[in-house]
Amino acid sequence: MTAPSAVWTGWQQPSPRLRSMRRAQFLLTLGVLALPGAVAAVLLGQSLIAAAVLALAVIGTLTVWTVTARQWRAWGYAEREADLLVRRGVLVWRLSVVPYGRMQFVDVTAGPVDRWLGLATVHMHTAAAASDARIPGLPTAEAARLRDRLATLGEARAAGL
């Protein structure tokens, strides 16, 4: 199987700021965990440990930089006539199709970092708990448009359970 994106046209991607968001989340975590550790090690005279912590932090940052870029490229969604396609994943590829008529409700969520970057996540729920139609990193306006469109289409095509 080639990357699922090869099969359909009309794929749309989340905002490139999704990368920035993931990186910012990582850096925030790093700042909370690694920096105080390194500072404490320097103060205690353990410069070797401090150097090791900093080296790990740099390696981690570089890895996260490339991984987030690849993950962002893997995300995609396509609004087809009767259903929504969502693809994602680098290590594990996933491709979901959710018919509009199966939609029970749509969520739009945004955490503090998302809001700062003007992003939101759209999550379409069906009656099956396993359904997986979540699109992160959409610009707020696009998220609102998609939510309204999904809600309208869902109502027009609603199928019973």
Binding site: M1, R94, R102, A128
Partner: peptide
């Protein structure tokens, strides 16, 4: 309710994939 096509790294090496049917 929905369909999911999933391919893990080991499956990719073997050109395999799993199709899930969500109910």
């Amino acid at each position: 309710q929905s369909l999911r096509l999933v391919q893990g790294p080991w499956q990719r090496r073997l050109r395999l994939a799993t199709l899930h049917l969500d109910t």
